[in-house]
Design a protein around this nucleic acid. Structure first.
Lengths: 213, 213, 213, 213
DNA sequence: TATGAATGAGTTTTCATTCAT
DNA sequence: GATGAATGAAAACTCATTCAT
């Protein structure tokens, strides 16, 4: 076995692997686009491969079926989302103002993350529940994480005396609900992208004070 | 020139029409059940007709396809929902307390309506968007009606001085959002049916005061 | 048993039978229309009964199926056609001129008969062969009758010396062929109804002289 | 932005295209056979694919439905027919004898073409009109071409003085009619294949001289 | 007897998946 | 490994025919 030959084959192997990975990513991107455009259920494997002019067979070399590529997309989305929110903000706020600022900061961060994942976010927000019981459950879990996070902070605030006594579970769910609704409008295009930050501030304000006088 | 055979008794005509209507309603009821049980997309026409033991052909005499029966169900649902909320509460509240009470009353009413439509409500809340772009749009319109309703009242309250100045559009959307989230939990079974009223009260409280101290 | 009652029931019976016959005829007429309009194969029983606003079931009280009503129509058509042509013109022509006149007379008679059966004639001329092997055969038989008739006269003429020697079988077929083609154009609407007689004369002339000088 | 995976060899592409074309042709051939054997209307897609043992799906990858494959067959037939008759015989005949010979030559050519297309010819001659209003129209157009062709030559002959004055439109139609009738008998099996040429001669003779003495 | 709602066997049609090239 | 033609199981859909009213 010649040295040179071996090197070439080494190179070849790498480039093959890279090409393969590139195809996989291209398929996922295409799937995301098509899912958003036509809806998950109306999308056929042929639509996905047609989007990037790749053979039907190629799809099946990379994914088991349509459900699998949706799952892969979801995993990617969930990972990037949780990566951002798992490292809980180290110093807990101690005072209404600090809490308010922390909330705003969290919202800003969320907006940023979602902005870069628009397509996937929209896909799963709107259609996630209808894809699969399994995926529905995973989605619910993610939302639950946010509820838990909100509740954790809210309970702190109540304990610290800078939030009023309330059913923190329900209120946390409410907060997540209003955020989701806003998200839906934003990603769905009903809200101008530049007004998102303002809206976030308004929501935080509303959460802290309600609309009462 | 049309030939007209011997007249048929009015009686016969009526009984035929009634039978037809009964079958149609039975199909819709069956479809609702099956959609809820298996999900819209996993449901086949054969499942629906199997549910009430009518022929496959019967289905197609009444509806063009699966989409059509879902549309009919939605229309029925939307109608009963709007019927309840269109006759706007005659005397507008004039004061924070009255407003709060009116809100609670509205929530109670909504709960009542939805309780009797549990299945359909859940179906459309969870899967509506995934059925069809068209149905998705209709769904969005309904939600929008509630946003408009909320905003109408909120603007009144602000003008009357018993609600603080705020972006009433965003806040109204937020209110609808928190209601939807609660609904989802409730209809999905995460919340005990008997606690719904309490939750409603908590939400109203939250909307008026926020969680601030 | 009262005399009067019996008489009434007698009358009743007759009117029932008449009504029944009327319905049957109306169905046949309707079928003829729809067959011509949509083609035999594209016609559904529901189209036929829809044409005269009669119940589906009624159709089956009168005819076994779609094929049966087509058969009845054909029988009616064939009968009226043959009735006209079976009583062979008593005195055989004896001379070219007489023969020519007899041909013209026969053509005129055919035109008259067909004019009153336009619809059916068109139907069977165009679609007869495609309905059924059986009906195709019946149709072929009718045409054959005309060929035989033509050949009979032609052979006579040849024997009598006022037609040239020729393959009378082939020539007779040719005569029937040209007549059919003309018929198709006429009934199909390509030829003005008022020019049919002229065309008939032209054809007879052509048959006798050819187009040679 | 389209992603394009690794290029496929030209070779592969060609072999795929060839395979596809082969399948398409096989389907058309099978359809022709089955249509002739069972009749167009009695033929099901399953019969066609069964004839050559390909999957039902394969059919639908190549044709929209049964009507489409019949249309393709017709186009193919019409093309091969017109290809033979469009290049109008260069030197126009100038004299009765030449005209007669040209006619015989044309008939011989037609017989030759049709002999090699027997099945399709019979199919469309007998059932074409019943397939579809559209196909019926196309069929009529083809016949019209022949009428036009005949009329062109006849008009020439009249102008040249070697055909008598007559309504050339009607006579041309008649010529086509007699040819069609002969065709029907021939292809349908009523006439021995070997006698076709004789019959053609007889028809030409008849057209030139009629049966008059 | 007439009716038209219901029926379901029989076709068409789709599309995820396989597999020869 | 990539490809896209072929596949066929499974679903949708049709419509002649039955049958309760």
């Amino acid at each position: 076995m010649l040295y040179k030959g071996s090197m070439v084959s080494e190179l070849r192997k790498r480039s093959d692997a890279e090409r393969r990975e590139r195809t996989r990513l291209a398929l996922m991107e295409a799937a995301g686009k098509v899912f958003v455009r036509r809806g998950y259920h109306a999308t056929q494997v042929s639509h996905i491969v047609g989007e990037i002019d790749v053979g039907q067979g190629t799809f099946y070399r990379h994914f088991d079926d349509k459900r699998a590529i949706a799952g892969a997309l979801f995993d990617q989305f969930a990972e990037s989302l949780l990566a951002e929110f798992t490292p809980m903000s180290a110093p807990l706020p101690s005072g209404v103002e600090q809490y308010r600022e922390a909330s705003l900061a969290a919202a800003a961060r969320a907006v940023q993350v979602l902005r870069s994942q628009r397509q996937l976010a929209l896909l799963f927000l709107r259609q996630g529940a209808s894809i699969d019981l399994d995926l529905d459950g995973q989605l619910a879990q993610i939302l639950d994480r946010f509820v838990v996070l909100a509740k954790f902070h809210l309970d702190r605030a109540i304990a610290g005396g800078f939030a009023r006594e309330c059913d923190s579970e329900i209120v946390s769910q409410a907060i997540v609900g209003m955020a989701l609704r806003q998200l839906d409008l934003w990603l769905g295009g009903s809200i101008d992208d530049r007004r998102v930050e303002t809206a976030a501030r308004e929501l935080v304000e509303f959460a802290f004070r309600g609309f009462g006088p």
